[in-house]
Design a protein around this nucleic acid. Structure first.
Lengths: 144, 144
DNA sequence: ATTGGTGCAAATCCTTTGCAATAGC
DNA sequence: GCTATTGCAAAGGATTTGCACCAAT
């Protein structure tokens, strides 16, 4: 069974927090998962409008941030253009091309343990870690 | 001798690339170094105006990006508020507080080798890595 | 003398806010 | 019915652009 359209996890988490299950929230999560990776708010918005015409920009922003808080999405800020949202929640890293802005996944283990321990030692309570490798993607390197 | 006001490295790198040594560039680098850590463009701009009145916003933006390209600064995007620039170029990581937005340094070794090798294997040419740990800082945790 | 850098003003882009209307509980 | 969510329009803030002028080479 595909994970893409199953929104039970969202429903459960909303109920657990006493928040409402709205069609916008369900549709936005599905759009994020259908996109696959690193969607901008605008891309999600356009996709959502097909299923739920009239959905507003502020709702998409608020909902994507809510999904992050619920642990169903990750927010990605690579310093070029708009923020991006990633429906993949398993640990993985990102590579961003300085020339074209393209973002790719990188599946490498990262010793988060040591980092979190070092952070804790300073009194900081670590919740999440985000690693971004910047450089030049294969396509742009080929162009010179 | 303090490193803060010595801009020989900038002069050398500009000459090497055939770019001009301007007072704006020197003053902006000094302001960045004097600030110490994680300055916003606006903070740098205000500091620069004291030494060089009339300096424009676009110049500060362009120059900070140039410093990054020259390897004399790092750009930090933590997804909340404006971009930040860091004059510390030695490898170190960053912690950002989700509540107050405060950014702190974390001096932990990170096995960049393995990451760069994995990136290279995909055809991506890695240039730099940036790790951000998000969570709650000691001060905000104390407030509950 | 050339032309890369700069200042100015304005535009653009991304994101958030205020408030009335709506829909989930 | 109560109140969290939503839609709309507008504001806000960060960053970039176009162009004329200036200053480093």
């Amino acid at each position: 069974m595909s994970h893409s359209t199953n929104t039970n996890d969202l429903v459960e988490r909303l109920r657990a927090r006493g928040q409402r299950v709205t069609s916008q929230r369900l549709v936005i999560l599905r759009a994020l998962r259908r996109h696959g990776g690193h969607a901008t708010v605008d891309e999600i918005h356009r996709a959502v409008l097909r299923d739920l015409p009239g959905t507003s920009t502020p709702t998409v922003y608020a909902t994507l941030d809510l999904l992050v808080e619920l642990g169903l999405a990750r927010k990605l800020d690579v310093g070029v253009g708009a923020s991006r949202y990633d429906g993949r929640t398993e640990p993985h890293q990102h590579m961003v091309c300085r020339r074209c802005g393209r973002i790719e996944d990188l599946d490498v283990e990262l010793d988060v343990e040591a980092l979190v321990r070092a952070a804790d030692a300073t009194g900081f309570q670590a919740r999440d870690t985000e690693l971004v490798i910047s450089g030049v993607c294969a396509a742009c390197a080929a162009k010179g």
